[in-house]
Nucleic acid binder design. Structure first.
Lengths: 138, 138
DNA sequence: ATGGTATATTCAAGGTACTTGAGTAGATAC
DNA sequence: GTATCTACTCAAGTACCTTGAATATACCAT
């Protein structure tokens, strides 16, 4: 069944990233926080609402995530100069590390998998997964 | 990145199964309940402890899941004839439908994906995912 | 300009799916 | 037969989400 086949590697990836963060002294960063660092505008900052939409959660939930990241020194809240209702969420120096670290961790895992499966097969697997997603496109 | 590629189809599969259950009048069945129906012994019943180990949750959590399934008429609790401490959890007639329905739903989704991606490519994809898992084997 | 509506955020309460700790009943070992 | 181990349950707490309601600000039509 395709279920197991997709779920197991995905779970392994999540575990790998979580362990990598912990090892790098970022044990406070958990999966629900990552969409922030994937989408946020690192120069201007981004609105809670936009982050929430991208992460597929309610603005209330994202507001709480941002609270947490702010308490832990990963982001700061600024007033939006052009809209008094909005706050802009912008990563701090510490927050800027997260995106890069996540990238390094995932690339490291991909390299390991590629070595174990064979580079050619791994490239093919990624290509087929991409094609599947394009074809199914949910 | 392999992350998206694994996560998206997996999430689509989970949604598909959930919708299928709801459409068949089993809207009370959610993802955490499925491991019960995958592993339980349909004739003798299984112990909470064994179900918990298979599902990778604590016995307490599994106990609550079983409560829920019992309240909704999917399983019944029996005394274990050979161990007075244990209870055996056994699906009712209604519970027996769940395993079959889950299988039909996943096969239906696989057929759709296979049609969209092409049967040859889809078989190859499944084979590569299997090989990856054998090679990485977490 | 002002009144009505829409938007951005936060506060509050609640639900689900887990966790660990503690307690009880029954099984097992010496 | 006492001590220990096991199966389960009860209780309390946490993480991560939800919807509903309140507040401040923006926008828009008259």
């Amino acid at each position: 069944m395709i279920g197991e086949l997709l779920r197991n590697p995905n779970a392994a990836r999540v575990r790998h990233v979580e362990r990598g963060f912990a090892a790098a002294g970022h044990g406070a960063i958990h999966p629900p926080h990552l969409p922030v660092f994937e989408y946020v505008d690192y120069e201007r900052g981004s609105r809670i609402t936009d982050l929430a939409r991208h992460a597929n959660v309610s603005p209330q939930a994202m507001s709480e995530v941002v609270d947490y990241l702010e308490r832990h020194g990963y982001v700061e809240r600024l007033r939006d100069p052009v809209d008094g209702r909005a706050r802009l969420v912008r990563p701090t120096a510490r927050g800027r590390e997260i995106y890069a670290l996540a990238g390094r961790l995932v690339r490291g895992l991909e390299d390991e998998w590629s070595a174990r499966l064979g580079a050619r097969k791994f490239r093919l697997l990624k290509r087929l997964l991409g094609e599947l997603w394009d074809a199914v496109g949910d």
